[in-house]
Structures are given as C-alpha cells and as structure tokens.
Design a protein around this nucleic acid. Structure first.
Length: 462
RNA sequence: GGUCCCAUCGUCUAACGGUUAGGACAGAUGGUUUUCAAUCAUCUAAUCGGGGUUCGAUUCCCCGUGGGACCGCCA
C-alpha cells in the first residue's frame, strides 16, 4: 500500500471554527499515526468569497493547536487549468456532456418538483442531444454522466457501508458556464494529484462521495478510502456554523484556554480510547485510529473544556505556565511589568490553584500587577470602624515585624482575633479587601508574603 | 417533501451476545478550624418505544419515534 496521505481542504470564505479544527486534527493524527503525510489545501475557487485573511486565520488556528501541514499549502485555484483538462478528457471519453439548459429552464424544473413534493434531479435533457437543437445564445455547462440505475456502495471507514440508489445522483456540473471547474471536479483531481490515500472529512460530504467516486472510476484512478466523521453540534443541537459564537479558536484563546487542553478536548469529542481522558501529544498520535470514532454527532460543552484546561494548568511547570501567562497578558490584557515578573513566578502556584483559565490567573494576579488598589463600593461598606481598627492594629504589628514569615503573620493575626474578640474572617476579610480590593482571592498569608513590605504598608495606610 | 445517517446518565463516552450498565464533566451532600476556590469522601443520574432472533440482548434484525446531514453553475 502506498504511503498514507491525508489532507484538510477548507475554503477560505470565513473563519475556521472548531469543527473544522477537529477534522484537521483527526486527519493530522491519522497521518502521524501511520507515519504518513498531512497536507493543507486551500479551496479558493470561489473567487467572490475567498479572502486572504481567512487563509491566514485557518493556518494560524491549525498551528496554534499543534497541527502543521507538510509541504507548502496547496492553492486550489492555481490548478484550475488541470481541472479543465480533466473535464475535457471526460467529455472526450463520453463520461460528460454539454448541457445547454438556460438558468430559467432549470429554475422552472426545480419549482415544478417542489410543487409535486419530489426531490429535484436534473432531467438529463442534454445527455442525449440527438433531437435537440443547440441554442446559439447559451453557453453550455459540462455535466458528468452519472449512473442512472442500480445502486452504489461506499465502504466508509467510520460509517460502515452506505448504500444509495444511483437514480438520485444527478448529472452534476463539473464545468460552469464561465468554464471554471466546480468543487466536485477540483477536489477529486487535486486529491488524485496529491496522492491522497484517506479522505477524512465531515459527515456533510457523504453524498458527494458518490459523485466523486464516479469521477475516479471514469478516469481509472485509484479511489481513496473515505471516513466521514459526525459533525459537532452547537449547544442548540444543529450543525456548527460560522455564526455560532465561541466557535473559532480565537474565542478560546481569548479567555485563556491552553492549546494542549483544547486539543485534548477536541480529540475526545467523537473519539475515545477506553476510559482514558487525558492524552499527551505523543499518546494522541500513538493511540489515534478511525475505529475509535463514534457515529453520532456530539455537542460542544464549555464546562468540559474549562475542566480539561484546569487540569493542564494544574499540572504545568510554573515557569512554563508563567510564560503562557505573559504572552496571554500581552495580547489580551496589560503587559506584565518586568519588575513584577519574579513575584509572579514565585506566586503562580497558589494563583493557579483557583483558576480554570489564564484569564482567571491574570485576575487573581491583579493585586500584584496593579499599583493602585480600587475598592468597590460594596466591599467598602464591609469596612466598618471596628474593621478599620483591626487593620490599623495589624499595620502597627506588621511594621514592627522583624522578619515576615507565615509563622509571624499567624501569631499576629491570632493575637488580633483574641484582642478584638472575633474570628479569622473578622481579621482576614478587611485585610484582604484593603490589600487586594476584593473579598475573594488567594489566602491572606500568601497575599502578604507575595507583596513587598512597603507595598503592604502603603496599602494598609490607605 | 425525497435520500442517507444516527440514538447509553443533562453532556462527552465505555461495555467478544452474559457487568450490580463503567468512567469523566456538570449537579447534590458532607469533611478539611478565613472568603472564593481547590481537595477528599459520598450520592443523584442512562441503554427512545414496540416487536422479533436467542437459554440470554445496550449489543443482531424489523417497525415506529426523535434528532441530524444533504438535496447550488458554494465548498
């Protein structure tokens, strides 16, 4: 068998959503698992809607999640002449024919079918043009001569055998009136030229397989294997569209999802290996197979993405995590001041304990990053006179403290609890509010230990 | 409407035709003598319905029901 080659072939007519990313990931994993190749083909033959920025977005998204294509990306539009040649060849060999139907004529047929409540299939008028007069004012399209009777079977590596009556496959257009090739033709020709062995794509292409297979056969080309993976559904339960929010990679990066986490999530969405939930990159490559792909569509679940992300954050080396945080802050928040870096690295282990995302860590770190603490009106109300006295007392003790250690802080706080006849909350909460501007956050000792002595004093004095 | 596909806890899913139907996320409860978390322990929760085949169906077959995809001179 020839070397495994897969491809991902998006059209750059909109931002890639994570359904597409998953398809690419599966293709990539499958090729890596088989020590084969993975190619990217940009299907930009729709000139009107294709945009360079989307092409860039697609490649960025794939790279971000760790999917890199072999060779340069293929640009489909550069290959149009070859596609046309093949159309001519099909025409010459009587596998295709010119159709002179006007657009009105087709429209009329469609409406008729709709009225009758039957599926529209082109009536094959020009398949046998014996008694027809060729109109002078119409440029023909070229249609493929599809099988009329019998059944066709595709052995799908995910779906199993799919059987379909040939009569419902119409004589589809392979060359438009303006002479440009359509998707059905271009995809087949390119896949053939690229020596693609396995076409792994969304479920929505299933019917196309029956058209495309006929082109392969007419050209006497090897037919690749097909695997149609179920689509990802939105939370509403329908096909993920470009309009759904939180569906592009960028939406996840923005809230601080790690690429390892999203890759792991996507891998497990529609694919499984026993009870295993967490897969390293190497494990993914080694264990991935088409057998593990389920047949039913799956829904996006944000809480699960967050949970996996949390897992990766918890298990990540602090320096590496800081690097991610730094990059994240730079891009989506405020850049981290270099003077604060050391403090942050030191503190990241307790800052991350309360976080599901990089954004959470950033928020937890804000009391370190910000020079001025703002206290919300609501929190300010909690600072009554007795709380203020506690803060004052603490400040006195703190200034006298020879060495700031957890033990010394504990001693001081316990002393204040006794003195003011209160509990830990009575002391801890006002201190936290004054030091961080929030009722919530890390443990109070961690907060104090992570800040410089003079910063603590300054904040307490306010 | 036609064609095709799919169907296990709320969600992602596991289970050579024989399991008390398992795990994970979410949810609930309790413990950890500061908040929010985290953590630990425990719990709730599913084979869409009806027929077959079989000693025995989540698993195989048929019929319903529900959901989805496709039905472009888009890809």
């Amino acid at each position: 068998m020839s070397k495994v080659a897969t491809r991902f072939a998006p059209s750059p007519t909109g931002p890639l959503h994570i359904g597409g990313v998953r398809t690419a990931l599966f293709n990539w994993l499958f090729s890596k698992n088989n020590k084969g190749k993975f190619y990217l083909r940009i299907e930009d033959t729709d000139k009107e809607r294709s945009k360079e920025e989307y092409k860039k977005q697609i490649i960025d998204s794939l790279n971000w999640i760790g999917v890199y294509h072999d060779d340069k990306e293929y640009i489909q539009s550069k290959n149009i002449n070859k596609h046309k040649e093949i159309a001519e060849e099909l025409l010459k060999n009587d596998f295709a024919y010119k159709c002179y139907c006007s657009e009105e004529e087709i429209k009329e047929q469609k409406e008729k079918c709709k009225k009758k409540g039957i599926a529209y299939v082109y009536n094959r008028k020009w398949r046998d043009p014996k008694d027809l007069k060729i109109p002078q004012n119409i440029k023909p399209v070229i249609r493929f001569k599809s099988k009329i009777s019998g059944n066709s079977v595709v052995k799908d590596l995910v779906q199993g055998e799919i059987n379909i009556g040939n009569s419902i496959i119409e004589d589809f257009i392979i060359l438009r009136q303006d002479g440009s090739p359509t998707y059905q033709l271009s995809a087949v020709v390119d896949d053939h030229l690229m020596n693609i062995t396995h076409v792994i794509r969304g479920d929505d292409h299933k019917i196309n397989t029956f058209k495309q297979k006929q082109i392969y056969e007419a050209m006497k080309w090897n037919v690749p294997e097909f695997a149609h993976i179920p689509l990802i559904h939105s939370e509403k339960g329908s096909k993920l569209s470009k309009r759904d929010k939180a569906s592009t990679i960028d939406d996840y990066i923005k809230i601080g999802i790690l690429s390892d986490a999203l890759r792991n999530y996507l891998l497990r969405l529609g694919w499984s290996h026993k009870d295993k939930e967490i897969f390293s990159l190497d494990e993914s490559i080694n264990l991935f197979n088409l057998k593990g792909i389920g047949k039913s569509p799956s829904k996006l679940d944000m809480s699960r993405i967050l949970s996996i992300n949390e897992h990766y954050i918890k298990h990540m080396d602090e320096k590496i995590l800081f690097k991610f945080l730094k990059i994240y802050s730079q891009k989506y928040k405020k850049s981290i001041d270099t003077s604060k870096e050391e403090t942050l690295i030191k503190s990241i282990n307790f800052l991350k304990n309360k976080a599901k995302t990089l954004e959470d860590i950033y928020k937890n770190s804000e009391y370190i990053l910000k020079d001025n603490i703002e206290i919300s009106a609501e929190d300010f109300k909690l600072l009554d006179n007795s709380s203020k006295n506690i803060v004052k007392d603490f400040l006195n003790e703190f200034e006298k403290m020879s060495k700031i250690t957890k033990e010394n802080l504990e001693k001081t706080v316990n002393g204040l609890i006794d003195k003011h006849k209160t509990n830990f909350k009575g002391v801890g909460q006002p201190l936290r509010i004054v030091l961080t501007g929030s009722r919530f956050g890390p443990g109070i000792y961690n907060i104090i230990l992570s800040l410089n002595k003079d910063v603590v004093i300054k904040r307490l004095k306010n």
